[in-house]
Write a protein that binds this DNA or RNA. Structure first.
Lengths: 190, 190
DNA sequence: GTCTATATACCGATAGAC
DNA sequence: GTCTATCGGTATATAGAC
């Protein structure tokens, strides 16, 4: 970090400012895309939130679409064991949603790229979960459980349904865990 | 309706053509809004699908927003008894989605008016369901069940998750009904 | 009543000054 | 490296011809 000979600019190293701007733009993009979705968000909105000039946004990321792609990248989640990751996911969903996830979900119904990203993400989760529970209809039961978590996420963080939003994190996690655990049990086929 | 003196146009009654155009425009609007959402849909798209001139669309409905409002109105569902309506909803969601519901859900994450409409609709369903099941956490359990159905709807008809889309209507309804029935049961509080 | 032409505005993106 | 100015395109919406 202090690899340079002489600091011509006293405090901020010349290229570090650029990197800082780039990061601020990305944060601002996640926030704006997460609030109103890809289409309603303008490059000018993002620039204003980041405190930079609109042209800088495109200078750094090339296009609005490329910036969106960068903004919705999820941190590579570990493959994870099996069914106990259900509790993790549920906890994450009950509390605040990470900015990149929020941006991704906000546009999943209207932007094909976001739709694909969510599909891939959830298909993978379903596969892992199905492998962990076994029994008849394992894939379908796992898919229903994962879809239910998606529905809860939308209900709580985007639609703000009354009884989902007003519940405490603890209550929601407790009751939802019970419900999903029950839902994951194999059923008699009579 | 036949208050006028003489039919100057022989076959099509003068105002009947206008009503027919209006209905065709509304159908086309539901289709287009349901496919790509409110913002990505242009008045020109709707006019093209309806086979009319773009300016006619605004002549009839005043604005794109007013047309959207008309397009997402749900047929007033009866209050309905209680828990057995769960099966109805599930069946509807497993098969095809009505055009106005599809248009509504497609934009529920990006258009405030659609978000509010879905919230009101689901809050009402939750209230009815909660009243029918009783027990501890009735509202929360009902909210989780309704949110799960929403998640399944999104997964099947919008994201097309692998294991949800590939399942037959019968399998999906059977397993989901089992899962939701289990989820709605009161749990021991130990 | 339906279509042509256009007003008005805002968007994404680019070029060039500093 | 950052900002100013602007281009080109497209949208909604309106006014007027037929």
């Amino acid at each position: 970090m202090r690899n340079d000979t002489v600091a011509s600019t006293p405090t901020t190293t010349r290229a570090a400012r650029r990197a800082a701007s780039q990061a601020r733009i990305l944060d601002a993009a996640r926030e704006e895309f997460g609030r109103r979705g890809f289409e309603a968000t303008t490059v000018r909105d993002i620039a204003h939130r980041a405190g930079v000039d609109p042209s800088l946004v495109l200078q750094h990321y090339g296009s609005k679409s490329a910036l969106f792609t960068a903004a919705i990248q999820l941190p590579a989640g570990e493959p994870q064991e099996a069914a106990d990751h259900l509790a993790d996911v549920l906890n994450v969903r009950a509390a605040a949603l990470p900015p990149e996830m929020r941006a991704l979900v906000r546009s999943m119904l209207t932007v094909p790229e976001a739709s694909e990203a969510v599909r891939r993400h959830l298909d993978e989760r379903i596969g892992n979960l199905a492998a962990g529970i076994g029994g008849p209809d394992a894939e379908l039961r796992a898919a229903i459980a994962v879809s239910s978590i998606l529905g809860l996420t939308v209900a709580r963080h985007f639609l703000q349904l009354r009884d989902v939003s007003s519940a405490s994190d603890d209550d929601l996690v407790r009751v939802a865990t019970q419900a999903l655990t029950a839902a994951l049990q194999p059923q008699r086929s009579d």
